[in-house]
Design a protein around this nucleic acid. Structure first.
Ligand SMILES: [Zn+2]
Ligand SMILES: [Zn+2]
Ligand SMILES: [Zn+2]
Ligand SMILES: [Zn+2]
Lengths: 127, 127
DNA sequence: ATAATTAATGCAACAATGTTGCGATATATA
DNA sequence: TATATATCGCAACATTGTTGCATTAATTAT
């Protein structure tokens, strides 16, 4: 079987994401990592971390992709990322709102498997 | 003042979007328009139509941008696009669900100005 | 109907972002 | 320490979106 390895690039990138209180884009991670590795490597590490369920991918309102660490217990049976994200239109910070759970009624002829909710406006720091 | 003009490109693109029951990307519009105009013109026409509030922009789960016509009455006082979108993971169709209204409770220290909700799963055709 | 104004277009050139192939490197294991 | 192979670096490429400018065409005025 295909195993996964802990490399310096992977460790560094994961630390950067874990220590950030906002979601980070590929470019932001590259800057913060001080070019510790190639641009392509960052893409591949991010894919791996998402696959390992250590971080999750967020699509921002403008279509940019951001990454944040997963704060759930890793032994959950049902593992979803159905929490809301907030995108501040002033400081552009994207944060996970793990406690907010949206409710909605869907027509029965749809099968909903995942939700991706993003709110925008002003965050507490910018309010 | 700067007026807007009705050109063949604009008319054609708007017709394509209006007659589609799913949201369309720039590339899809280009294909459907049979290369009636330059790639850049499509970008500019789409920006104009969004600015005129005739169509609205949707960010799909994968970060791709799609466009759909607005179905609201144009004399509404409050004009928002806070409806849910559904993205089918099989046929990749993105549709507007104008009737579904999500509810949620936000912490008071956030100011929510806009919402962007996308559900994914299987649409009625693929179920 | 014709001329004048300028919004809109086409084209080229560029920037940003993401992907792929492959030889070289480094990690985990024996 | 030796081996297997996951991962990396690099180059090359694809896609998507932007900008500047000369040309074209839609609207308005004459
Ligand atoms: Zn903010
Ligand atoms: Zn999150
Ligand atoms: Zn479908
Ligand atoms: Zn819509």
């Amino acid at each position: 079987m295909k195993t996964t390895r802990n490399t310096t690039a992977k460790t560094t990138i994961l630390e950067i994401i874990k220590h950030s209180d906002v979601a980070l884009s590929h470019t932001e991670i590259q800057t913060l990592s001080n070019n510790i590795c190639d641009r392509v490597t960052i893409y591949r590490v991010l894919d791996r971390l998402v696959g390992e369920d250590v971080i999750h991918k967020i699509v921002n309102l403008d279509g940019t992709i951001k990454y944040a660490s997963c704060h759930h217990a890793h032994n959950e049976v049902e593992h979803t990322h159905n929490h809301i994200h907030f995108s501040c239109e002033k400081c552009h910070a994207v944060t996970c709102l793990d406690t907010v759970e949206p409710t909605f009624k869907m027509p029965s002829n749809y099968l909903v498997k995942a939700v991706n909710f993003t709110l925008s406006g002003l965050c507490p720091s910018c309010l």
